[in-house]
Structure formats: structure tokens, C-alpha cells
Simulated assay, not measured.
Amino acid sequence: MDITGNTVFIPGATSGIGLALAVALRERGNTVVVGGRRTELLDRIATEHPGIETVRIDTADPASIEAAAKDVLARFPAVNVLITMAGIMRVEDWHRPESFLESAESTVTTNVLGPIRLIAAFVEHFQTLPNATIMTVSSGLAFTPLKITPSYNATKAAIHMLSESLRLQLADTAVEVVELEPPAVQTDLIPGHAENEQAMPLDEYVAEVMGLIETQPGAREIQVERVKFLRYGEARGDYDQVVAAVNAH
């Protein structure tokens, strides 16, 4: 993926990593369109970040994805980068199904079906372009589980394997598939996490990601140094110790 000159659509970018990445990409000379459910947040972004375009989208709703994709393709026909940022993370207790089942189903809908439907909405258009990028968003927890978020871990593992598979299928096209693998980052993905001193500061994370995109334009996985502890535990042979460390607090 080139660092500049793109038209980028980022559903799920009204806060956290998505918004910070949208701002950074806009500063690098890209046209950026952010999507989200809450129109008041979209309006605020348009006011506070002139030049960033917005579209309403609920990635848990197939009809909303279809409508938003048509809107984006009509208004921004040069769109050539999709970053499937939208996701939810919920604490679950699997001892009792009534305490986790609804949460698990919502997590799968947003974190797995959402990206699948988004990719389906853009992949034919992308294949008509000389270059295009689908950037999926998994997590370090795709490779090392956090005990309290089983469904989130599972959905991010699914996104990792989906990314691997799509890359193979689309190898005969000009569409790149790049997987962004964040570690714990100081955002409001779960309540209180933005103040978690063990998580990576958001601005530091996005700055390192932008540096990796610039210096490794052909990378298949965008991995900041901090996520490699989670990503490669099994390969290093210290997986059990990594799991224990992640779940020690």
C-alpha cells in the first residue's frame, strides 16, 4: 500500500485507532472518508478535521453497508483502499449462556460478518483498478487469548485466516490484502482501556503504523514491535508464558 495518493474508506473511524489513522492518512495527502453509526460524531469530525469526508454506516446491518458502499462509490469513484476498522470488544463470562450468548453473537456479527460484507461490497470495483488495498484489522489477541474476551479473540483469529485466504485468492489481481494487527492500544474499545498504562499510547501506535506503511509498502501484516510478543509466542516456543503474562492482570 502506498502512503499517499489514495482514496481511503474507513468504516468504524469515529474514534480510537480508526479516527487517528484517518487523520494521519489525510495529512499524508490521501482523500479520506470515515464511516460510523452516529451522525453527531460524523458531524463533529467534519467540523474538527476539514477535508475528511463522512458517510453514515452501521456495519452490523447488511442494508446499511450496501447503501453506504453505493454512496461512497458514487461520490468517490477513485476509492481504492478499504480499511475494515469497525469492531467491538466485550468482556464475557462463559460459565452461564445467558450471560454471554447475546454478546458473542453481536461480536461475531460486527467483527466477522461486517468485514466480509464490506469486502463483498467493494471487491469487484477494486479489481477494475490498477492498484487497490483491502486492509483488515485483526489483533494481537488473534494469536494469544485474553481470558475475559473469548468471542473477540475468536473473531480476530477468524479475520487473520480470512486475510490469509483472500490474499491467496486475489493474487491474480492488483488487489493487495494487508492485515493490521494492533496490540493493546489506549482507546475506549472497552471501558477504562484508554487509561490503561500497560497499553500503547494511541498517537505512538499510529505513528509507528504510518512509518511501517511508508517503509514497507509491500508488507502483508502491519506489526508494530509491541505486538510481536503476542504474534510470535508459538513460533518462539514460549506461548504458554505469553498467555500467562497477558492474563496475569
Rank of each mutant, 00 (worst) to 15 (best):
M1C: 11
M1K: 09
T4C: 13
G5H: 03
T7V: 14
V8Y: 01
V8S: 08
I10G: 05
I10T: 07
P11N: 07
G12E: 02
A13S: 09
A13P: 07
A13H: 09
G18H: 11
L19A: 04
L21F: 15
A22H: 07
A22S: 13
A24R: 07
L25E: 11
R26G: 04
R28H: 14
G29R: 13
V32M: 13
G36E: 06
R38G: 01
T39L: 12
E40R: 12
L42A: 14
L42Q: 14
D43P: 05
H49Q: 15
H49M: 06
G51D: 05
I52Y: 07
T54S: 14
T54Y: 06
I57M: 02
T59L: 00
A67W: 00
K70I: 09
V72D: 06
V72Q: 07
R75I: 06
R75F: 06
F76C: 08
F76E: 03
A78D: 14
V81A: 02
V81E: 00
L82N: 04
T84R: 05
M85D: 15
A86D: 02
G87Q: 08
R90T: 14
D93N: 15
W94M: 05
A104C: 13
A104V: 02
E105A: 12
E105T: 06
L118A: 07
I119K: 01
A121K: 03
V123I: 15
V123A: 12
F126D: 07
F126H: 04
Q127K: 15
P130R: 08
A132T: 05
T133V: 10
M135S: 03
V137K: 02
S138E: 04
A142S: 15
F143M: 10
P145F: 10
I148P: 00
I148R: 13
T149Y: 13
P150I: 10
S151N: 01
T155G: 08
T155A: 03
T155M: 00
K156M: 10
A157R: 11
A157P: 07
I159F: 12
I159H: 06
L162G: 00
E164M: 12
R167W: 08
Q169N: 11
Q169F: 03
D172K: 14
T173K: 09
V178E: 03
E181N: 14
V185G: 04
L189G: 10
L189S: 14
P191N: 07
H193V: 00
H193A: 14
A194S: 13
E204K: 09
Y205K: 00
A207T: 15
E208A: 15
E208P: 04
V209Y: 03
P217T: 06
G218S: 11
E221C: 08
Q223L: 15
V224S: 13
R226W: 03
V227T: 12
F229C: 00
F229R: 13
F229K: 12
R231F: 14
R231T: 15
Y232M: 01
E234F: 09
E234V: 08
E234Q: 13
D238A: 03
Y239N: 02
D240C: 01
Q241V: 03
V246N: 08
V246R: 05
N247G: 09
A248G: 09
H249D: 09
H249T: 12
